[in-house]
Design a protein around this nucleic acid. Structure first.
Lengths: 137, 137
DNA sequence: ATCGTTGCAAACTATTTGCAGTGTG
DNA sequence: CACACTGCAAATAGTTTGCAACGAT
């Protein structure tokens, strides 16, 4: 949370209650929420806040490296306050998005750099399947 | 292309010139086009075909395992007639989407199955960087 | 006091749906 | 010749934009 304040100040963005609240939601959940879900979580606390504010804030957070944007295959983005390059796993039934440990995959970026002529900067690894709850059903 | 005819017949879908053309576009390109791009490529040949037809057709192709849908991070899907689980690399400047060889990553699905309690069915691996043309600029 | 930020409404984009007419099997 | 498919137009969903009022520094 100190990170948020520091980074916003550094980049010349103002610190507002809405931005703090949005960051808090992202930081206190493992759910990888969409803009809509963040909006719903905050509507009691900020009844007048609009979705546009969420989107504008997430845009700033992205540019500042405070969150990363995930594309799990729905037609909406999800957001993660953990900005480290780590893989995700998505349940095809309940659409839950979980983290996977990073360490198994740290070497991949370099390997890709070796086999392609691209300059590789980042990666997004998504695995799809059934989560422990759904696989039993 | 025989694949297309066979699969459509098997699943009880009708064979129409539009479906053949859409599959042909996907099969003859390495570009991983979006619905919009397929539409543009076919508008001279099929001036009356609508985007809705493209979407409906891609939906059928997806369900039949004839194409896979990619989510490279733009706000639109891209489609690939190569339905094998293979990784992609995306240029952050020109948005080109290239294939990467599959072999480097074949073991990952099993490894994920070992470290998580999910039943892993498929994966999408996206690497981001600059392509050979753009990295020089 | 200034200038970035908010909140509303409207615009926009990708995709989906309803339905009447059409054409494949 | 039935029923799935097409094409159009309208609906929907996620996201973005314009702008006047607001509020942090």
């Amino acid at each position: 949370m100190e990170t948020l304040l520091k980074v916003l100040k550094e980049k010349g963005y103002k610190i507002t209650p809405q931005r703090i609240a949005i960051y808090r939601v992202l930081n206190n959940t493992k759910e990888h929420p969409s803009a809509e879900i963040i909006y719903k979580k905050l509507e009691k606390e900020f009844p007048t806040m609009s979705l546009a504010t969420i989107y504008k804030t997430l845009e700033i957070f992205k540019k500042s490296g405070l969150v990363q944007e995930l594309n799990v295959g729905e037609n909406s983005f999800r957001y993660d306050a953990n900005v480290k390059d780590h893989p995700h796993i998505i349940c095809l039934k309940c659409n839950k998005v979980d983290d996977l440990p990073e360490n198994l995959f740290t070497h991949l970026k370099d390997e890709v750099g070796k086999v392609s002529d691209y300059k590789v900067l980042s990666k997004q690894l998504y695995f799809y399947g059934y989560c422990p709850v759904c696989k039993g059903e």
